[in-house]
């Protein structure tokens, strides 16, 4: 495993921990999109179907369990926990996430590397992950009042995607036959979705002012 990949996984892990910290400790999910969190739970559930059938490494299995467990518990907190539920900004989180699921499923059925159930589900999860952040970005844009933890959560998620791109470039040059257009194009699309947010995040940090997004 190269350094970019490890750093990517770690920023992904940090983003989840930041979100759990906010929800579990402060008992608030203000500014967090339940739609995005539900999409992530679906992403991990469909991607890690191999968790009990293909052993890759202890690291791999443990990380999969963490991402599955954290994504489902975040959804549980936001839907069922009395205090957390109350801080959920339901009126602004209106992105119809079903509209993302169906096109991704159709695309996975059309474009994949192997036509097997596991591989099509895996491909679906790759496509869905690329667009799953959209409800969150729309919510940030609508509320415009972004607290530090929410900003950091989205920042670390974006950092994770950028580092994975560096990881693919590294692997392309160091491993024979490492060519995966599906992952690369989806990953690139996903990273580009963060570009706007990154621009405002970094300029607010540089100027030492509170993060706001333009309407």
């Amino acid at each position: 495993m190269n350094a970019f990949r490890l750093a990517g996984d770690m920023t992904h892990l940090i983003s989840v921990l930041v979100l759990l910290l906010k929800i579990h400790t402060i008992k608030s999910c203000a500014g967090i999109s339940l739609k995005t969190q539900e999409l992530y739970a679906l992403v991990f559930a469909t991607r890690y179907l191999d968790i009990f059938t293909d052993f890759i490494s202890l690291y791999n299995t443990v990380m999969k369990l963490i991402f599955l467990g954290s994504s489902f518990s975040i959804v549980w907190y936001m839907r069922r926990h009395k205090l957390v539920q109350r801080s959920y900004d339901k009126d602004h989180d209106t992105f119809r996430h079903q509209l993302l699921v169906l096109p991704c499923l159709i695309l996975a059925l059309l474009i994949h590397e192997q036509f097997t159930f596991k591989e099509v589900m895996w491909t679906f999860s790759i496509y869905l992950e690329a667009v799953a952040i959209l409800p969150q970005l729309v919510l940030l844009q609508r509320t415009r009042n972004i607290d530090n933890l929410t900003g950091q959560y989205v920042f670390f998620l974006g950092a994770y995607r950028s580092l994975y791109i560096l990881n693919w470039i590294y692997r392309y040059f160091t491993e024979p036959h490492y060519v995966h257009w599906i992952t690369w194009i989806s990953g690139l699309v996903q990273t580009l979705l963060y570009a706007d947010f990154f621009y405002y995040y970094i300029s607010s940090w540089k100027n030492n002012v509170k993060l706001t997004l333009p309407a």
Partner: peptide
Amino acid sequence: HRHYDYHDEL
């Protein structure tokens, strides 16, 4: 074989 070389990513 190439098949699982990218499934090691999370």
